[in-house]
């Protein structure tokens, strides 16, 4: 008798769990980064998205862009806001059905590699990094920048001991002197700068053609099934970006709260960010052709570095500005 009841409860519980995970769209989940202040976080915190979309919008923080891809592959996440271009390229090259639907933020200075002061390495003797450890997230924009820089400075990347670490851990490793250099973006990069200096400045990187921006990516299914929701999401984002650009000082405190950073660091980092408008994004400089070309360039570079098995012939099919 008791056993029967017990089994019934277990079965009902299991069924409930199963059903809840398989139910229809009752909310959308957006992946984002902590310590990465973006203008749309005002709308995130004030629930503007939820009101405009008429559905609950859940924001879930991730450690790196590849984890975002994997979560999207499993169907748990619909939109990745501010996913790095490289994780997106890796995902699409491997056939993951992800669409690039917008440019979230352009930044050159907020993502970089810092050489520990004790390592005594500058651009002039960058080859000394061979045989040393560099902590970096692997398979993302930061990694791409590092490889491009090493390539430019004549360092054999295969001889560098690259250790996969997310930014926060990499900052700890650099502070302890466990690694000669560390690469990160956002808050951890600011902490790293206390212990050393950048290998190349953002301006120097741009001069050799390294572009750094994050994208808005979505699963193909979500774009196909809910184009209206996606367009509204992009519209709210564009309005938030416009509002911020008009009066940055007004919103910085709200953004710092959402990003989980103190105000000074938020201001500092926001100073390095630009949020292109929807109109700009559709233009030639962004999704009108440049993003497509750069994406192919990044993919080919990773293949050449032996990190990616193969690149697609073109990434145009997965880049879609029509939701802007």
């Amino acid at each position: 008798m008791h056993r029967t009841r017990f089994m019934t409860i277990v079965a009902a519980g299991a069924a409930a769990l199963f059903v809840s995970s398989a139910s229809a769209l009752d909310k959308i989940t957006v992946a984002y980064f902590l310590e990465w202040p973006t203008a749309n976080q005002v709308a995130q915190l004030e629930k503007t998205y939820d009101e405009a979309l008429g559905i609950e919008v859940e924001w879930r923080a991730f450690g790196n862009g590849n984890e975002m891809s994997q979560a999207m592959a499993s169907g748990d996440v619909h939109i990745a806001y501010s996913q790095g271009l490289v994780p997106w390229v890796v995902a699409v090259s491997n056939g993951l059905p992800l669409k690039l639907v917008g440019v979230a933020v352009s930044y050159a200075e907020a993502d970089n590699c810092v050489v520990h002061a004790d390592a005594g390495v500058t651009q002039a003797n960058a080859a000394d990094l061979e045989g040393k450890k560099i902590a970096t997230p692997i398979g993302n924009v930061t990694h791409y920048k590092l490889l491009r820089m090493l390539d430019h400075l004549g360092v054999d990347a295969s001889k560098v001991d690259m250790v996969q670490m997310n930014g926060a851990d990499a900052a700890v490793a650099l502070s302890r002197g466990d690694v000669a250099a560390g690469c990160a973006f956002g808050g951890p990069l600011q902490r790293m700068k206390e212990f050393g200096s950048e290998l190349m400045t953002a301006a120097e990187q741009e001069a050799i053609g390294i572009r750094v921006f994050d994208v808005v990516s979505v699963t193909e299914d979500f774009a196909k099934d809910h184009p209206d929701l996606l367009m509204k999401f992009m519209a709210v984002t564009d309005q938030a970006n416009a509002a911020y650009s008009a009066d940055p000082g007004r919103y910085q405190e709200t953004i710092s709260m959402a990003a989980g950073m103190d105000l000074a660091a938020t201001e500092n980092m926001l100073g390095m960010f630009s949020f292109p408008s929807a109109a700009d994004q559709k233009a030639e400089a962004w999704m009108g052709g440049t993003v497509q070309a750069f994406t192919k360039e990044v993919a080919d570079f990773f293949v050449q570095q032996g990190q990616l098995d193969q690149a697609l012939d073109s990434y145009d099919f997965a880049i879609d500005a029509s939701f802007l």
């Binding site: 590849n66 997230p137 398979g139 001991d161 996969q164 990616l308």
Partner: peptide
């Protein structure tokens, strides 16, 4: 960096 677990971790990032 090295090791079977590390290999899997990095491979995961490249899907």
């Amino acid at each position: 960096d090295q090791g079977v677990g590390s290999m899997m971790m990095i491979a995961k990032n490249f899907l």
